[in-house]
Design a protein around this nucleic acid. Structure first.
Lengths: 203, 203
DNA sequence: CGCTTAAGTAGTCACTGTCAACAATGTAGT
DNA sequence: ACTACATTGTTGACAGTGACTACTTAAGCG
């Protein structure tokens, strides 16, 4: 190209630039189209440059998904209350943070759960995803130890909890919860059901 | 169909043939690729023939999604027990049927919930989707009238229930529930939580 | 300074969705 | 009956995509 003194021939850290550009495009969420060429165009490099850093498109998407899971885990950790008095007080802010993450990053969230799990990438992705899962599992474990949660197989309880919030998030993303109409009623009701279902009867 | 001596120029009922071919391809689920040209190829017509029946690819996908919702509704209606003794007995077979539908038609199920909802198509699609929703809402309404379900806003309870089963189904499709390891424990646990959360304390 | 090598480029290929022009078929009007 | 027309399917073309290869350039090393 002609004169572009600002950008050196060697981008320096094109890998990171590609990822950030891609994340920006995901955030804009213009109908969930994602072309590698568009990413390269936006990053200001040629359409084949990303191939020097990612073997193919799926690899980039997998990377983005993993970053998404990391961010989700961080968001949930940050939302965890310090000294919750009840199980509900402990779970509610985390659930809200989860739902907020999904609705604020719909394209990214969808990508996270739409990556092919048959590939080798799926293994690593599942690791990150299960790290999110572990947060919930830990809460249940401590709750059972403290006696505030029924003593039942944690795997099932955790799956119920994750499934519930994941489903609500997906429905919200798909516009089937009509949040402007329903408000936060579904989340509150769902959490009530969950807390009352998982919590010890004595509580 | 009978033998086609030399495929007539006019297919006769290409619209239906295209839809059925597409559904077959969805069922095969080879990695969620869906090209209009492949559908036309399989249906034995030229690559542009479907455009005489569908304005574009999205229209065909929307049609498929609607059919999917109709089938799901039928499956759930068929699974509804005649004379359930408890709330759990009533909900369990329906939930199992829902999960089975999702795991047996993963590509179709995903399509149903991935259609763009911003378009005009989304309105009709939402109608069908909400018809499924109504089944759950009706159960809750009757349950509240009979006193077996806590009297709380039905919208929230229904959202909780649908979100739960939808989330479990999606997780199962994405292979994050490792069903061969966990078995039906998540569903059972989730239903326990839901039933105990929604059901009246007296029950 | 000259060399190797990583980083970026241009260009190709097969494929897709879509559109326009054309041909075959069925239908209606006189 | 026999022609005008509308319907339906076909062919061919276009731009855009992901993947790939051969080429060019810059950067770092001896």
């Amino acid at each position: 190209m002609q004169d572009t003194p600002s950008r050196p021939y060697h981008h320096g850290d094109l890998r990171r630039a590609v990822i950030e550009t891609a994340l920006d495009m995901l955030a804009e969420e213009k109908g969930w189209q994602f072309t590698l060429r568009e990413v390269a165009r936006r990053a200001g490099v040629s359409h084949a440059a990303p191939y020097k850093h990612f073997p193919d498109k799926a690899a980039l998407l997998a990377e983005l998904a993993m970053i998404g899971f990391d961010r989700l885990r961080d968001a949930l950790s940050a939302a965890k209350p310090e000294a919750p008095k009840t199980l509900r007080d402990e779970i509610t802010p985390i659930a809200r943070a989860y739902l907020a993450f999904g609705t604020e990053n719909p394209a990214l969230y969808r990508l996270m759960f739409s990556a092919e799990e048959g590939k080798a990438v799926g293994m690593h992705l599942n690791e990150r995803a299960l790290a999110v899962f572990d947060i919930l599992r830990e809460i249940l474990r401590l709750g059972q130890a403290a006696g505030s949660i029924r003593k039942r197989p944690i795997e099932g309880q955790a799956a119920a909890g994750w499934g519930l919030i994941h489903g609500l998030t997906m429905l919200a993303i798909d516009g089937l919860l009509v949040p402007e109409k329903v408000g936060s009623a579904p989340l509150d009701a769902a959490l009530s059901a969950l807390v009352e279902g998982l919590g010890s009867p004595a509580t």
